[in-house]
Nucleic acid binder design. Structure first.
Length: 768
DNA sequence: CTTTACCCACTTTTT
DNA sequence: GTGGGTAAAG
C-alpha cells in the first residue's frame, strides 16, 4: 500500500484523519475533493473498518466508479469492491429490491424513466377528459416530482391549503387527484419512478423500525459527495441512516449548487452545522487545477451572489492567459470560429483533441459545433442529449423485456401489445381497459381471458397468440440468462425482421441499435459481477434493474478517446479540461429565459457560470453570437450579463470586435433579414393556397343522398354506377383482390378521377 | 384495422 | 428541425 498521506496539504490531511463524528468538508472547485474522499475511505479501511460497512453516495455512476477504482489503487487489493458506493438512486434501488415486499411491491419492480412517467400521466389526464392546455404531462410530472422530493404524500398534498390554493389559482385544481391516481397506478403496475426510489426508501425506513435499525447498524461510516445538490428526501434519509453512529462526512461546495430544479436545496449544506452538535468543518481552498486568472475571474463572478459560505479560493499556479471573449454574427460563425480555434491551438500549443471541451447551456445548441468540427475533420463526441436508452426502438425492445419480468407493467404492455402490428388495435385495447377497470383486474389478467372483454374472432385470436408468446418468454426466466431471453424476443417477435427490411438510413440505424443493445446484454451476462455482496445474478430481472439507472455517460468505458467533448455545463460538473469554450453566452440562453424573474434562479445560473469557468485548467473562451436560429427562426440576443461581471483586466476582447471590421458580415446579416421577409411572404402564400385547396375539396366533397344505404359488396360488378359517401357518383372500372380483400377501381364524376376503394371498409350503394 | 400525411408544440438543466 | 398525435385514405 502506498503512503497515501504524503501528497496531501494540511486541510486535506485533516479531513482524511478526522474519521469519527460529523464532518463537513467545504471543497472549492479543483481543490482535490475526490482525492480527499477516496483517501479518507482508504484510510478507514486501513484502520480495519470493514468495507461492507462503508456507504458512499454520489450523484453519477461515473463518479462512483471512479472512486471505487481509485480506492482500489491506493489499497492495492480487491477489498474496494465490497464498498457500498453508488448513486443515491442505484444504492436505494438495490436496497428497495431486497425489501420490496414490505412495501407491497414485487422484487422485480420496474423503474419508470421520465418518458414512462409522462406517458402514464398522459393516459390519466386523457381518461379524465382534462384540458391538456393546463394539465400538461410535463408540468404535472414536475409538480408531483417536487412533492415527492419534499416528502409530501398524495394525502398530505390534498390536505395542504397553500398547495390547493396554488393549484386552484393556476387553473389546475385537480392536481392533487392526479398525484393520487398516478401513485396508485404506479403501485398497481409494480413500478417506481426516479423520485420513488428516494420517497419509498424514506417510507421504508420510517415505517419499519427494524429495517431502519438494520441499515443504521450496517452503515457505520457514511460519506456524501456533492452535498449541495441533495434534496429534502435525500437529506432526511441520510439523517435517519446516520442517526446512530453519526459518522457522517459530507463534501460539497455551495457555489456549485446547480440542481434546484430537481428539488436540491442549498439549505442542506448551509444548515449542516446546526444539525449535528459536534460537527467539524474543514475548508479546502487551494485550487490545483486552474491558472490564477481563471480563479480570480471565478471568485469575482461568484461574489455577486448574496447567499454563500465565505471562503477564499486561491492557487499557486501560474498567472496564465486572459479569458478570450469571442463575438460572432451568427450561430454558425460561432461554430466555425471555435472549430478554427481548436485547429489553431492544436498546432500552436500541441494540444490533442481530448484537451478541448465545448460547454453549452442547453443540449439543442450542439449543432453548429458538430457541423463545423466535422467540416474540419476534428473528432468529437457529444455527451448527453437523446440517450441510447431513450430511442424508440430501444424502448420498444426493452418494453418486451420489462413485460416479461413484470407483467403488471401496463405501460410496457401497452407499448408493445400491437407493435409490431398484430391486429390488436385501439378499440380492442379500449375494451380490455374497460373490462380491467370494471372487474378491478390488471390489464394482463384480462388479456388471458379475452372473452371477458368481449373479444372474439380475429382480435380474440390475436390476443391469445400474444399471450402465448409472452408466456413462452416468461417460462425461460428461471433457467435462462438475460441474453438468452432477449435473443428469443428478437427472434420470435417481428421487431428485428421489420427493422431489417427497412432499408432507409434511419431503418438501418435502428437495426444497428437493436444489435448494439443485444451485444450489451450479452456483455452483461458474460462479465462477472462487481458487487461482492450479491450473487452473480445474470437474470433478465437484475439486468433491467441496473440498466434503468444507467445513463449514456456511463455506457462508454473508453474514456480516453482522443475527441473533443461536447456537453452541457451540468454534465461537465466534476470534470476538467485544459481548454474550455463556454459558448452561447447570451441573455435568454445563459442566463436562461426561465430564470430571469427570480433572484434565487438567477443566482443558480450564476453558480452555473462559476462551474463552467472553473472547468478550465489553462485556457478559457467565452463566446456569444449576435443572432442565432432557434426553432427555425432568427432571434437576436444581447450578450450575457455575466460577461460584464468578468473583471476587465482579465478579459481579452480582441476577438469581440464589431462585425463591421470584416466586410461581408454586414451584408450577411442584411440578407438573412431579407430572407426572413420573403419566407414570411411564402408562408402567407402557402396559407392562402391551403385555404383555396380546402375550399375546392369542400366543394368536391359529396353529400350523400337521403336514401343512401350501402349495398352488399358481393353484388358489385364491373361497369356498375355506384355512389360513395364522400366521392359521389362513379363507374366501377375493374374489380380485383381476394375474396377477403376486394378492391374496386372506380372512376368518379366530379374530377377526383380514379380511386382504388377497399370494399371491406368503404360503403358503396349501387345506383344502376 | 393499418398506413400515411400533415400539424403542432416543443427547448433549460438530470437521476 | 423533430417527434408524436390525429385524421383521412386504403
Amino acid at each position: 500500500m502506498q503512503d497515501y498521506l504524503i501528497d496531501l496539504n494540511e486541510q486535506q490531511k485533516a479531513a482524511v484523519l478526522h474519521t469519527d463524528g460529523p464532518l463537513m468538508i467545504v471543497a472549492g472547485a479543483g481543490s482535490g475533493k475526490t482525492k480527499v474522499l477516496t483517501t479518507r475511505i482508504a484510510h478507514l479501511m486501513s484502520l480495519g473498518v470493514d468495507a461492507f460497512r462503508i456507504l458512499a453516495l454520489t450523484f453519477t455512476n461515473k463518479a462512483a466508479a471512479e472512486m471505487k477504482e481509485r480506492i482500489g489503487n491506493i489499497l492495492g487489493n480487491s477489498e474496494a469492491k465490497n464498498l457500498y458506493i453508488g448513486t443515491f438512486h442505484s444504492v436505494f434501488a438495490r436496497i428497495l429490491r431486497a425489501e420490496a415486499q414490505k412495501l407491497g411491491y414485487p422484487a422485480n419492480f420496474t423503474i419508470y424513466d421520465t418518458d414512462d412517467a409522462k406517458s402514464l400521466l398522459k393516459s390519466i389526464i386523457n381518461a379524465r377528459d382534462l384540458d391538456d392546455k393546463f394539465y400538461k404531462p410535463n408540468y404535472v410530472l414536475n409538480r408531483i416530482s417536487a412533492a415527492k422530493n419534499r416528502l409530501i404524500s398524495p394525502a398530505a398534498y390534498l390536505q395542504d391549503h397553500n398547495i390547493q390554493q396554488e393549484d386552484a389559482r393556476s387553473n389546475r385544481p385537480l392536481m392533487g387527484q392526479l398525484y393520487e391516481e398516478y401513485t396508485a397506478r404506479c403501485f398497481k403496475n409494480g413500478a417506481m419512478d426516479f423520485d420513488d426510489l428516494l420517497y419509498k426508501m424514506y417510507q421504508l425506513l420510517k415505517q419499519f423500525p427494524e429495517t431502519l435499525a438494520k441499515y443504521q447498524h450496517k452503515f457505520r461510516y457514511i460519506l456524501i459527495d456533492e452535498y449541495q445538490d441533495t434534496n429534502l428526501a435525500q437529506y432526511q434519509i441520510i439523517k435517519l441512516l446516520a442517526a446512530v453512529h453519526e459518522n457522517i462526512c459530507v463534501v460539497g461546495d455551495d457555489a456549485q449548487s446547480i440542481y434546484s430544479f430537481r428539488g436540491a436545496t442549498i439549505d442542506n449544506i448551509m444548515r449542516f452545522q446546526d444539525d449535528y452538535e459536534a460537527v467539524k468543518v474543514i475548508k479546502l481552498e487551494q485550487n490545483y487545477r486552474s491558472t490564477q486568472s481563471i480563479i480570480k475571474v471565478a471568485n469575482t463572478v461568484i461574489s455577486n451572489n448574496k447567499r454563500q459560505i465565505p471562503k477564499n479560493l486561491w492557487t499557486s499556479n501560474e498567472v496564465g492567459e486572459k479569458i478570450r471573449l469571442v463575438r460572432t454574427l451568427t450561430d454558425n460563425d460561432e461554430g466555425r470560429f471555435i472549430a478554427d480555434a481548436i485547429a489553431e491551438q492544436k498546432l500552436r500549443n500541441h494540444y490533442a483533441n481530448k484537451d478541448f471541451a465545448i460547454l453549452y447551456r442547453t443540449n439543442a445548441q450542439s449543432r453548429s459545433f458538430e457541423e463545423n468540427l466535422r467540416r474540419m475533420n476534428i473528432a468529437y463526441r457529444i455527451y448527453g442529449g437523446l440517450s441510447f436508452y431513450q430511442r424508440k426502438e430501444i424502448k420498444d425492445f426493452m418494453a418486451y423485456l420489462r413485460l416479461i419480468v413484470n407483467p403488471q407493467d401496463e405501460e410496457a404492455l401497452k407499448r408493445i401489445i400491437n407493435y409490431p402490428a398484430r391486429g390488436i388495435g385501439k378499440s380492442s385495447i379500449e375494451r380490455i381497459t374497460i373490462a380491467a377497470n370494471e372487474s378491478n383486474a390488471t390489464f394482463w389478467e384480462i388479456l388471458q381471458e379475452p372473452h371477458r372483454a368481449g373479444l372474439k374472432g380475429a382480435s380474440g385470436a390475436a390476443v391469445e397468440n400474444f399471450v402465448v408468446m409472452i408466456k413462452s418468454f416468461q417460462s425461460m426466466l428461471g433457467k435462462e440468462n438475460a441474453y438468452d431471453v432477449a435473443y428469443a424476443v428478437g427472434k420470435h417477435t417481428q421487431i428485428v425482421k421489420e427493422l431489417y427490411n427497412d432499408k432507409s438510413v434511419e431503418g438501418l440505424a435502428r437495426y444497428e441499435n437493436i444489435q448494439e443493445l443485444l451485444n450489451s446484454i450479452k456483455e452483461y451476462t458474460e462479465t462477472p459481477n462487481e458487487d461482492g455482496e450479491l450473487e452473480a445474478d445474470k437474470s433478465l430481472g437484475s439486468y433491467l434493474q441496473q440498466i434503468s439507472l444507467l445513463t449514456d455517460a456511463d455506457k462508454d468505458k473508453d474514456d480516453d478517446q482522443d475527441v473533443v467533448k461536447l456537453m452541457t455545463i451540468h454534465a461537465a460538473k466534476g470534470l476538467e479540461f485544459p481548454c474550455v469554450f463556454a459558448v452561447g453566452m447570451e441573455e435568454n440562453i445563459f442566463p436562461s429565459v426561465m430564470s430571469l424573474y427570480d433572484r434565487e434562479d438567477l443566482e443558480e445560473e450564476r453558480r452555473l457560470f462559476y462551474v463552467v469557468i472553473t472547468r478550465a485548467r489553462h485556457r478559457l473562451w467565452l463566446s456569444f453570437s449576435n443572432s442565432r436560429y432557434r426553432f427555425g427562426s432568427l432571434v437576436q440576443n444581447d450578450p450575457s450579463r455575466f460577461i460584464e461581471e468578468v473583471p476587465e483586466e482579465y478579459l481579452d476582447r480582441s476577438f469581440a470586435g464589431m462585425g463591421n471590421k470584416k466586410s461581408g458580415y454586414g451584408s450577411t446579416l442584411f440578407s438573412k433579414g431579407a430572407e426572413k421577409d420573403t419566407s414570411h411572404k411564402d408562408s402567407a402564400n402557402s396559407d392562402l393556397k391551403k385555404i383555396v385547396a380546402q375550399q375546392q375539396s369542400a366543394s368536391a366533397t359529396h353529400t350523400p343522398s337521403v336514401n343512401f344505404k350501402p349495398s352488399d359488396p358481393a353484388t358489385l360488378e364491373q361497369g356498375m354506377k355506384v355512389e360513395h359517401q364522400r366521392f359521389g357518383y362513379g363507374i366501377i372500372q375493374q374489380l380485383e383482390g381476394s375474396i377477403h380483400n376486394r378492391i374496386a377501381i372506380i372512376k368518379f364524376e366530379n374530377g377526383t378521377g380514379e380511386k382504388k376503394i377497399m370494399l371491406q371498409y368503404a360503403k358503396l350503394m349501387v345506383v344502376e
